[in-house]
Amino acid sequence: MTDVAIDRVERGVDRRMLTNVAYRLLGSMSDAEDVAQETYLRWYRLSETERDAIRTPAAWRVRVATRVCLDILASARHRRERYVGEWLPEPVPGQHFDTPGSSTDPADLIVSDDLVAMAMLVVMDSMTPAERVTFVLREVFRFPFSEIGAIVGRSEAACRQLAVSARRRLEPTRQCTRDDKRHDDTTVALTKALQRGDVETLVALLDPTVTVTNDGGGRVSAALRPIVGADRVIRYLIGVRRREADVDISVANVNGEAGLRMRRNGVTIAVASLEVRDGLITQLWVVRSPDKLTRWNSRAVEATGRLS
């Protein structure tokens, strides 16, 4: 591949589109970027005659990227067995998904959907690889079930059923993540309560069955199991705040919606996403693994809150 060709690939909308769909399938931006790179390597390994014979190159590359993702998803289950503590998707600063509202570019339409929200990614991670791929290809790309079946090795009827099953799993989460104003207000209130160590406000914000899930990846200190119940969660949050009094807590755009960013001496040490139902926080996902926070500490990233 020539330098000119590489430059065109790196800056192309098509590559961005592949990265975005792979992130929805894998929950890891670093893996998604590797998938896009591998897809283009396979494209350029084809002869010029072979490339010319492909009627829709973008669709061909999506199919190849999806197959690469399927291989990664199949091996991920074995890797998770060795993972220390709970595994959560990699949180991404909001501007990686922000796009002009009036755009009709296919890639912009892809990044505008709700499948990048942490709550959605967590639910999607519980799906089988075939179910997840079927749902994303159908939901985002509107691929016909016949083509999806060829990719996942299932019949058209089986893929239809996989899509239905996936929608049923995601519907409760979709219903509670669309009230952006309430989500934003709750996030701001939680941030202020943690800044002050305000137990009374925390009690008012948390659902009685609230759960906190930490992902330290074995790299930093983090609870290895989910913390369940408002009383236990409040004790945990207040305890962490006392131990980490020097940490700055602010609202940030996490995967396209309001979340929390924790920094010590300007370095992001944790990013949290939350699920809000009926004005109460039901889930808190806290990513502490440094391997999943590299983009938050990049000089090019300043993920400020949407509610400034």
Rank of each mutant, 00 (worst) to 15 (best):
D125K: 12
R277P: 07
I227E: 01
R225L: 14
I6P: 00
A303D: 09
R45K: 12
D113M: 02
A272K: 03
E200N: 14
R167H: 11
V188M: 03
E48T: 13
R306V: 05
T134Q: 07
V210M: 02
R11C: 09
R138G: 11
E131N: 08
G218D: 06
E171Y: 03
G279S: 10
P129E: 08
H96K: 03
V152K: 01
K181H: 06
I72C: 05
Q95S: 15
L205G: 01
L170A: 04
E38F: 10
D180Y: 01
V140P: 08
V68Y: 07
K192E: 13
D248L: 12
L70R: 15
V199R: 15
R16V: 01
D231V: 12
T294Y: 12
D31Y: 07
A158P: 02
R132P: 04
K292D: 14
Y40Q: 09
T39L: 09
R295V: 01
V251L: 05
R219G: 01
D71G: 15
V233K: 07
V133P: 06
E156K: 13
A163E: 09
D207T: 06
Q175C: 02
A36T: 05
N265M: 08
V92H: 08
V254K: 06
N297E: 08
S103N: 04
R219I: 01
D98V: 14
R174F: 03
G305Q: 00
Y236C: 02
A117L: 10
W285K: 06
S47G: 15
M127D: 02
L224K: 13
I249N: 00
A32P: 05
Y23V: 12
S112E: 06
E48C: 06
R288P: 07
L137S: 04
W296D: 04
S103D: 06
R138S: 15
Q195G: 11
S273R: 12
T213L: 03
A157S: 15
L194R: 11
G305D: 03
G27Y: 10
D180I: 03
E86W: 10
I6Y: 10
T66A: 07
L26Q: 05
M262Y: 15
R182P: 00
V62F: 11
V212H: 06
L88Q: 12
P129K: 09
S112C: 04
G218Q: 04
A58C: 04
Y236R: 04
S289G: 13
D108Q: 09
V35A: 08
D3K: 13
V188C: 00
R241G: 00
T294S: 11
Q37D: 15
A130N: 12
R45G: 05
L190G: 04
A166C: 02
A76L: 11
A32L: 06
R8S: 10
A258R: 05
G149C: 08
M1S: 11
R167K: 08
R225P: 00
Q37A: 15
I72G: 05
D14A: 13
R277N: 12
A76D: 15
H183D: 00
P93E: 12
P100L: 11
L190S: 05
D185W: 00
M118G: 02
I249D: 01
D248E: 14
K292M: 09
A230G: 01
D105T: 13
Q37R: 15
